[in-house]
Design a protein around this nucleic acid. Structure first.
Lengths: 109, 109
DNA sequence: CCGATATCTCACGTTCCGCTGATATGTTGG
DNA sequence: CCAACATATCAGCGGAACGTGAGATATCGG
C-alpha cells in the first residue's frame, strides 16, 4: 500500500507546470450551486428562467445573472418560446459542455 | 437545428432542484490555478512541495496552503520521504479523485 | 551543535464573487 | 392601451478566498 517514492535526495527541477486555464475556467463556473444546478437541469432539456428559479428557490434576476455568465462562456443558448415570447428558454451547448468536461477530466484523469 | 420547446404556455412547476453539493465542492477546489495544476502533476506520480512550487513559480508556503486544502478534502495524502525525511511527498487518493470526477460528470453528463 | 533547508500555520490586507434592490425592456392578456 | 408578467442589467454591499509575511517545527549536513 506504500507509494513509490523517488530515490533521489534532491527534488526534480525538470517538472513543468501543466496548462489548466480551460479546466479552471470550467470549474469556476461549476463552483456555484446555482450554476451547477442550472447546467444539470438543462441536461434533461430546455427550461425557462422562472422554472429554474422556482425549482432552486432563487430569485429570477439572480438566475438570469448566472445564465448570463454561462451564456458568455458559451455553455448555454437562449431561445424565445414560439407561442409565448415572454419566456426565454435556455438549452445547453453540448459541444461546449463536452469541451468543459474534457478539460476537467484532463486534470483528474 | 431547432430545439424542442414545450408547447404549454405555462412553465413547469414540477421541476426539482438537483443535488450538486459534491460537484460544487470538487469544482471549488479545481477553480484555482495552483490547485488544479497540483492535482494534474500528482496524476503522474508523487511530488514534494518544493518541486511543485518551483514548477509553478509560486512560493512554497502558498503551495503548502493549497495542499492543505486538498488534504482536508481527502484528494491527496502526504508521505515523508524514506531516506530524506525533510521532503513531504504528496500523492493523489485515486478513489477520492474518481469520486470527484464522477460528481462533476453527473452535472455535465 | 548550528546553520541551512523544507514544510507548516495563521493573521492580515486586498481582491473577487454572489446576492440584493432598483430600474429598464419587451410581451401577453384583458 | 395598460397592467401584470418574464427577463435583463447594474451598482453596491457583505462575505469568502487568495497571496503575503512572519513565525514555528523538524530534519539534514557539516
Amino acid at each position: 500500500m506504500s507509494i513509490r517514492l523517488p530515490v533521489i535526495g534532491q527534488p526534480r527541477l525538470d517538472l513543468e507546470a501543466p496548462d489548466v486555464t480551460e479546466a479552471t475556467a470550467a470549474a469556476a463556473l461549476l463552483a456555484d450551486r446555482t450554476r451547477a444546478a442550472i447546467l444539470r437541469m438543462l441536461g434533461d432539456g430546455p427550461h425557462c428562467v422562472c422554472e429554474m428559479a422556482a425549482a432552486l428557490g432563487e430569485r429570477e434576476n439572480n438566475v438570469s445573472n448566472h445564465l448570463a455568465r454561462l451564456r458568455e462562456a458559451g455553455l448555454v443558448r437562449a431561445v424565445r418560446h414560439e407561442t409565448n415570447a415572454r419566456f426565454q428558454y435556455y438549452e445547453r451547448d453540448e459541444a461546449a459542455v463536452a469541451a468543459a468536461r474534457r478539460a476537467l477530466q484532463g486534470v483528474l484523469r
